[in-house]
């Protein structure tokens, strides 16, 4: 399998580490909702077809990517970096 890293270009699968389902939403850092946390940590859809996954380019730029992959054919239709947010710029 070849994944086209937005920075490094097409690279072999061996350079990437699978980092799990990218469709989950993590509860807020301050959330104390155990049920929500439990769902986030353990529950997965495992779809047959299009799926959004985190892959890290550990053997390259080390950035995480969101890869849209068909789990039936391995065809990758889209690769992007996770969305960035404005830096929080707390008074450090």
């Amino acid at each position: 399998m070849i994944i086209t890293c937005p920075h490094c270009g097409p690279r072999d699968l061996a350079e990437f580490s699978y980092k799990g389902d990218a469709t989950r939403t993590r509860p807020g850092t301050a959330s104390g909702d155990l049920a929500h946390w439990n769902a986030y940590v353990y529950e997965r859809e495992n779809p047959a077809g299009q799926h959004r996954e985190f892959w890290q380019h550990t053997g390259g730029c080390r950035k995480h990517l969101i890869v849209t992959r068909d789990t039936l054919t391995h065809a990758i239709s889209h690769v992007e970096f996770p969305p960035t947010k404005a830096p929080r710029r707390s008074g450090a």
Binding site: K19, T29, K63, H64, P83, K85, P87
Partner: peptide, 16 residues
């Protein structure tokens, strides 16, 4: 290292 990178890239992209 991967654990830390994951949180900075994917969970808390607002942290510098």
């Amino acid at each position: 290292m991967q654990h830390l990178e994951y949180f900075l890239d994917c969970i808390w992209p607002d942290l510098s």
